[in-house]
Design a protein around this nucleic acid. Sequence first.
DNA 1: CGGGAAACCTGCAGGC
DNA 2: TGCCTGCAGGTTTCCC
Length: 270
Amino acid sequence: MPELPEVETIKNDLRPLLAGRVITDVKVAWEGCVDRPLASEFGDQIVGRRMEGVERRGKLLVFTLSGGKTLLVHLRMTGSLLVAEPTAPWGSHTRLSFRLDNGKELRFVNVRKFGRVYLVDDPQEVVGDLGPEPLNEEFGVDDFRALFDNRRGMIKPLLLNQRFLAGLGNIYVDEAMFQARLHPRRKAHTLSPEELAGLYDAIRDVLRQAIADKGTSRSDYVRPDGAEGGHQEHLLVFGRVGKPCPRCGATIERLVVGGRGTYICPRCQE
DNA sequence: CGGGAAACCTGCAGGC
DNA sequence: TGCCTGCAGGTTTCCC
């Protein structure tokens, strides 16, 4: 679920709550969520460290810790990070919890057990293969166009590829492709420079709008205080099969592209 | 490199 | 009410 706008929102919410806090204890309720180091060593390696930075890279949360370690969290489809009182009910899907020196707990909740945490010396070993950040100031339309050199696959799977471009998921790819009036099965190398410029603008517009709305809550996504995002009210095509296209009134269809449920307006997108 | 399918998991909606 | 099937916003891996 969480894509770039959701992770950005979580990062913005967490930073004032976590910056400067010391981790005083760790509870691992399900060892499988610790990708590295060994789950048995995770607590010993992290307890006592101070949270010095809270950042985002792609869909990953990046916590810079004292003593040269970095904690990274990938929420995958159903993960959330909650800041809770230790007395709050544990909940059967809480996989990991960090006790903080202000008495609160940072809890990693994950219904489907896909989310992972990484504690590493060099964050590059986790984020090193990611593509560029679409919202970075220095990421211009020419940089975007250059990504398409020698790419011959369908556009949607390409945009979902995190090594191509970091942060887009199923929802925002569909929304951006609708806004750019492009069919998700179009081959990357058939897009004109003008179409690529339109897609570049659409991706950035969609992401910025969703961040302004604090993300899209359809099923699992909630902010660290339990609040929902608001962008589900502004989705133009995603999940709206059978409803009228907001631009032309044609009926929105659902297809499968690259194995993913895909929503398009069959009249606007070619 | 491209594309499809399966795998990792659990919960929920829909059909009967 | 209960059972069964299919589906889910992410990512990796295997296979052709």
